[in-house]
């Protein structure tokens, strides 16, 4: 009887149960509640207002700015970090296993440093009285130091922080992907007359497809996490150029405006969903040799 209950198929569902419950409790339910808030006038009277909140959010200038900045940030930082991580993975590949392990630890360090400590470092580096200003700019009394995080260049610093923190992890993922490509493929390509560049394009890039998808999804997720560092560095209302969607969500929560917050969450979800779906579709369409 017991064996019948815990047969292979049922065991799958039973083992999935805690995970499903957790997913429901901590993701689906909050998402459902958010969608509910997005469709009512406020959380007290809770009158259904249809898509009014979505329209208001879409027309909100702060939301538009946050969306624009988030897209710009992702559009620049994700391709950059993926390219850099792949480059690092390729560069590290030929070295000895021992050196490789050391390099991996080195590249992973930024990921394990607590945000607070990291922010302290970045602040010391880029604040008005920070090292960059001291090292590269001398003041003759006519020029004033630059507050980089409140300058038009602020976005580049945020991109820098993001890449510095996450490139190592992505590099390891690419390394794992590279390890899975059989060496025979390169030999076949070589026999067929393909040069190194062509081998890279035809073999490496093609067979790294699933890794690319994984790195892309994780980079998208991590790009949202960069808010923590920006928030610690610049607070709730940073320079316009680094005002991201999370700032908007966070500040709407502080303003008790759950409707706008929930609507913005809806747009964010939709945006990520379409993005990931698109990438998945692209990856599915990829043809192998």
């Amino acid at each position: 009887m017991v064996r019948r209950i815990f047969n292979h198929e049922n065991a799958i569902y039973l083992l999935l149960l805690p995970s499903l419950a957790g997913l429901a409790l901590f993701f689906l339910v909050p998402f459902g509640i958010s969608m509910f808030y997005a469709s009512v006038d406020n959380v007290v009277s809770r009158q259904f207002v249809g898509i009014n909140n979505l329209v208001n959010t879409w027309n909100n200038l702060a939301f538009q700015l946050a969306m624009r900045n988030t897209l710009t940030f992702m559009g620049v930082s994700i391709p950059l970090i993926m390219a850099l991580a792949l480059l690092l993975a390729l560069l590290v590949r030929p070295v000895s296993p021992r050196a490789r392990r050391l390099l991996m630890v080195f590249f992973l360090l930024p990921l394990v440093i607590p945000s607070g400590s990291m922010v302290f470092f970045w602040r010391a580096l880029i604040s008005v009285n920070g090292m960059i200003n001291r090292m590269f700019f001398t003041y003759d009394g006519t020029a004033m130091p630059t507050d980089w995080l409140n300058s038009p260049h602020a976005l580049w610093f945020v991109i820098g922080i993001f890449i510095w923190k996450n490139a190592g992890f992505n590099m390891i993922l690419f390394q794992a992907g590279l390890d899975f490509i059989p060496k025979d493929y390169y030999e076949y390509a070589s026999i067929e007359g393909a040069g190194k560049l062509r081998q890279f394009r035809i073999v490496t890039l093609t067979y790294l497809g699933p890794t690319f998808l994984l790195v892309f999804i994780l980079s998208v997720v991590n790009s949202f996490k960069v808010f923590r560092e920006i928030y610690l560095l610049t607070g709730t209302h940073p320079n316009h150029s680094i005002y991201l969607l999370q700032h908007f969500l966070n500040n709407q929560f502080a303003n008790l405006n759950y409707q706008l917050m929930a609507s913005a969450s809806f747009f964010t979800f939709g945006f990520i969903f379409i993005l990931v779906l698109g990438m998945y579709w692209l990856q599915q369409r990829q043809t192998y040799i």
Binding site: N10, Y13, L14, L16, A21, A24, V29, G32, I33, F36
Partner: peptide
Amino acid sequence: IKAFVFAFVAIALMCLS
């Protein structure tokens, strides 16, 4: 067992709602 799993999820949903 499938029903139990989905019921559990549904109850969790309702409770939190």
